[in-house]
């Protein structure tokens, strides 16, 4: 076993493969429900990567919100609209070609920018004895105002969603 293959690196490669695989399958599947399920895989594996990065609380929030709530919400969205829909195999349109070229170019730029950057040797990251406790302490002292604002935003968004999706009276 080569010396650079540490456990962290091996776990990272497995999760990265699952993440990219899920996203690529999302692009290539033709049934919409299959696309949502493969993206649920991507979201779950991202939770794994967050655990490697010592962000356990965010990892479980990711699994609860994305793999749980958002995926199920999207499946509900599909079931309430056209759930039998299959994306028909159409010839590669001009728009798709342009999008593919644009995305590849963006990735090229990002890739070279990332490779060019010399990141300083990181000083030791201290996630705290208890990650959740550390986040909670910071959230309710330093970030308490943004926290309250975001709770307001969530309330407004969910009331708005209910009002939008409600069947109008007398229709």
């Amino acid at each position: 076993m080569p010396s650079f293959l540490t456990g962290e690196l091996a776990a990272f490669f497995i999760f990265a493969l699952l993440i990219i695989g899920g996203a690529i399958f999302m692009i290539s599947f033709t049934k919409v429900v299959h696309m949502v399920v493969s993206l649920a895989f991507t979201f779950l594996s991202l939770g794994g990567v967050y655990v490697i990065l010592e962000a356990e609380f965010v990892a479980f929030v990711q699994i609860l919100i994305y793999a749980g709530a958002v995926s199920i919400l999207m499946i509900f969205g599909i079931m309430l609209t056209k759930h039998e829909e299959v994306e028909t195999e159409q010839p590669w349109t001009k728009q798709e070609t342009l999008s593919a070229i644009g995305c590849a170019a963006l990735f090229g730029i990002l890739f070279f920018a990332i490779q060019d950057t010399t990141l300083p040797d990181a000083t030791d990251f201290d996630p705290g004895q208890d990650n959740t406790l550390a986040i909670g302490e910071r959230l309710f002292t330093e970030w308490v105002l943004p926290f309250e604002l975001v709770s307001l935003l969530l309330t407004v968004a969910f009331i708005g969603a209910i009002v939008l999706a409600r069947r109008e009276e007398g229709k």
Partner: peptide, 14 residues
């Protein structure tokens, strides 16, 4: 970066 580009491609073509 890979994930962002795949997402962008999906958002533009689906």
């Amino acid at each position: 970066a890979i994930l962002f580009c795949i997402g962008l491609f999906g958002a533009l073509t689906k």
